[in-house]
């Protein structure tokens, strides 16, 4: 991975990680309520794995950012619902509903977008500071 040199690398990569998180939320919400004929094929909610990435020159710069290193399925089991009229239902008349908690996903979405905004805020503040510093003494 590229070296973390400045504030733009820090915020940019953190925003990319939050974007992965928002993508998983979108996928989970899109699949909420989807049913499947067997347990193995039923959809399980996806979650990103965040990991801190420290700059190579951490001692000198103190910079660190975050990467979404992996996307994993949650271990929550799909719900078994009695729906004999469903064409995919098994011999006993059951289908498996996707293991997605909509409320949890909504909370996740809000938190991810808040943290995305925070990063943008940091960058725009730092950028205006840099512009002022460049114009020093004028």
């Amino acid at each position: 991975m590229a070296e973390i040199r400045n504030i733009f690398d820090v915020a940019g990569r953190s925003m990319a990680a939050q974007m992965v998180r928002l993508n998983t939320v979108a996928s989970n919400l899109a699949n909420a309520g989807a049913v499947s004929g067997n347990k193995e094929n039923a959809f399980r909610a996806l979650k990103p794995v965040f990991e801190t990435k420290f700059a190579d020159a951490l001692k000198r710069t103190g910079l660190s950012t975050v990467d979404a290193v992996d996307v994993k399925e949650t271990t929550r089991e799909p719900e078994r619902v009695y729906m004999p009229s469903h064409p995919d239902s098994d011999l006993e008349g059951y289908v498996f509903r996707a293991a997605v908690d909509e409320n949890e996903e909504m909370v996740e979405m809000l938190e991810a977008s808040r943290q995305y905004q925070n990063n943008i805020e940091v960058v725009s503040t730092m950028r205006s500071l840099m512009m002022r510093t460049i114009n020093m003494g004028k």
Binding site: I7, V10, A11, R13, F50, T61, T65, Q115, N118, V122
Partner: peptide, 14 residues
């Protein structure tokens, strides 16, 4: 500022 920005970037990292 850079250190604090790194903290904010890592707000969701376990």
């Amino acid at each position: 500022n850079e250190v604090l920005a790194s903290n904010i970037a890592n707000a969701a990292t376990p």
